[in-house]
Design a protein around this nucleic acid. Structure first.
Length: 98
DNA sequence: CCTCTGACTTAAG
DNA sequence: CCTTAAGCCAGAG
């Protein structure tokens, strides 16, 4: 299926909302769990309407936040106690598998 | 209808 | 660790 369905968008929102405090997940992991064929759609959902969701817990596959919101995101994650080293999240301990 | 852009990812040099 | 390129999909112009 090419077009993204409402159900999938809903699933993405749930998965993101389910990320525990102090942990993080990635665009790719969320997309895969929601049945999307590309992580870009997850980024699109957060960009268009991330209201009410812990968007700061969604980072890129390399463990770094998206450059566009890097500063803000790192600050929020640091407040939650997420292990960050040199601007990079320690995935080994903070990654949350959907 | 076509082109460009973007909170992405993987592979390759 | 750096940059490119290609694949991907939704929106905007």
């Amino acid at each position: 299926m090419a077009a993204t369905t409402e159900m999938q968008v809903e699933r993405v929102r749930e998965l993101i909302a389910a990320i525990p405090h102090g942990r993080v997940s990635t665009y790719g992991a969320i997309a895969g769990a929601a049945g999307l064929s590309t992580p870009r759609t997850v980024a699109w959902i957060l960009r268009v309407d991330g209201g009410g969701l812990p968007w700061q817990r969604v980072i890129r596959a390399d463990g770094r936040p998206a450059p566009a919101v890097r500063t803000r995101q790192l600050a929020l994650l640091a407040e939650e106690g997420v292990p960050i080293t040199d601007g990079r999240v320690d995935m080994r301990h903070a990654f949350h598998e959907p």
